[in-house]
Computed example of a mutant assay.
Amino acid sequence: MTIARLPAAKWSFSAMAAGVLLVGCSASVGVGNSEPKLSADELATTVSEKLALTTGQPKPDIACPEDLVGKVGTTTHCTLTADDGSTLGVSVNVTSVDGEQINFDIKADETASPAPN
Rank of each mutant, 00 (worst) to 15 (best):
E35G: 01
T46M: 06
G56E: 07
D109H: 08
S34P: 04
G89A: 13
E100V: 11
S34Q: 13
K107A: 13
M16S: 11
L6I: 04
T111Y: 09
G56F: 02
L68G: 01
L51T: 07
D83I: 13
S86D: 08
S28L: 12
G70E: 06
S91G: 08
L22P: 00
V97H: 01
D61L: 13
T87Y: 04
S86T: 10
A15P: 01
S12Q: 11
E66M: 03
V90M: 03
K50W: 03
S86L: 00
T81S: 07
L22G: 07
V94G: 00
G19I: 10
E42K: 12
G70A: 03
T55S: 15
L21K: 02
K71L: 09
T55E: 15
G56W: 08
M16A: 10
S39V: 06
C64H: 06
Q101E: 15
T79G: 01
T75F: 01
V69K: 11
S96T: 10
D98T: 10
S113L: 09
V23W: 04
T79C: 05
T2C: 03
E100T: 14
P65I: 03
V69A: 10
A27N: 09
R5Y: 13
A27F: 06
D67M: 01
G30W: 13
T74M: 10
T46G: 01
G85D: 05
F13Q: 15
C64N: 01
S113K: 07
T2A: 15
V92Y: 05
P7S: 04
N33S: 14
L22T: 14
T79A: 10
V92G: 00
D84I: 05
D41T: 09
D41Y: 02
T111M: 06
S14N: 09
D105T: 12
A9S: 11
A108T: 15
M16Q: 13
T76V: 09
R5S: 11
A4V: 11
T55K: 04
Q57H: 10
N103K: 08
H77F: 07
P60T: 02
L51P: 01
A44E: 03
L6C: 08
T55Y: 12
C25P: 04
P7T: 05
S26G: 13
P58C: 05
S86I: 06
H77S: 15
W11F: 14
V20R: 15
A27P: 00
V20L: 12
A9M: 07
G85E: 02
S14Q: 12
L68F: 05
S48P: 06
A63P: 00
C64S: 09
A15T: 14
G70L: 01
A108R: 01
D84V: 07
T45D: 09
S91C: 02
A18G: 10
M1K: 13
P60I: 04
G24C: 03
G30E: 14
L80V: 00
S113M: 04
K50A: 15
V97I: 07
I102E: 03
A82D: 11
P36V: 06
T95Q: 05
N117A: 14
M16I: 08
T45M: 07
A44I: 05
D41L: 10
G56V: 04
S39M: 03
G32N: 14
P114D: 13
A108P: 02
V72M: 05
D67Q: 01
Q57L: 10
H77E: 14
S113T: 10
S26V: 00
L6D: 11
T45N: 08
D67V: 06
P114Q: 09
D61M: 09
F13E: 12
A40N: 08
I102Y: 02
